[in-house]
Amino acid sequence: MSIDRNGKGKAKFDQLQAFIEEMRLEPGALMPVMQKAQEIFGYLPEEVQRFVAEGLGVTLSEVYGVATFYSQFVLEEQGEHVIGVCMGTACYVKGSQAILDRLAGELKVEVGKTTPDGKFTLNATRCLGCCGLAPVMMIGDEVFGRLTPDDIPGIVAKFR
């Protein structure tokens, strides 16, 4: 994806600009603006961070500082399908490490990284809030619960 405020990405930057206008006078606007930016672009490359900094009249280092502090903000482009394996306590005691290991093996990708073909990003996440279904993972918005490692190949195949 080209991230250029005058080129292909212009419509997205315009959308962000409109939100910045709306929020500019709110106290503590930086976080909501960055959350919006991530929603629009999917991640926060330098050009977008710079745009936010200029729009709100803060320094780029402040934006970068916030972007790197919170785990929700990502600085690199994500895969087409983002897989999050819950590593919350309830899932961990029910064996989510084995689920994560199996996925890493199946997709041949390290945790936190994206496959070379850009299809999958594999993440370990915090509690997803459905501990009753532990161990749990999410692919995009879809939740998969009561998993065993042997379920993995079948589920992954559906997204390939």
Partner: peptide
């Protein structure tokens, strides 16, 4: 409503307030 962004320490009261102010949640 203010949304958190995935930082456990922001549950601590003073960090939470920094975060609402739009800063790093220290």
């Amino acid at each position: 409503i203010r949304l958190g962004a995935g930082a456990f320490v922001c549950g601590e009261e003073t960090a939470l307030m920094n975060s609402i102010e739009g800063k790093r949640g220290e």
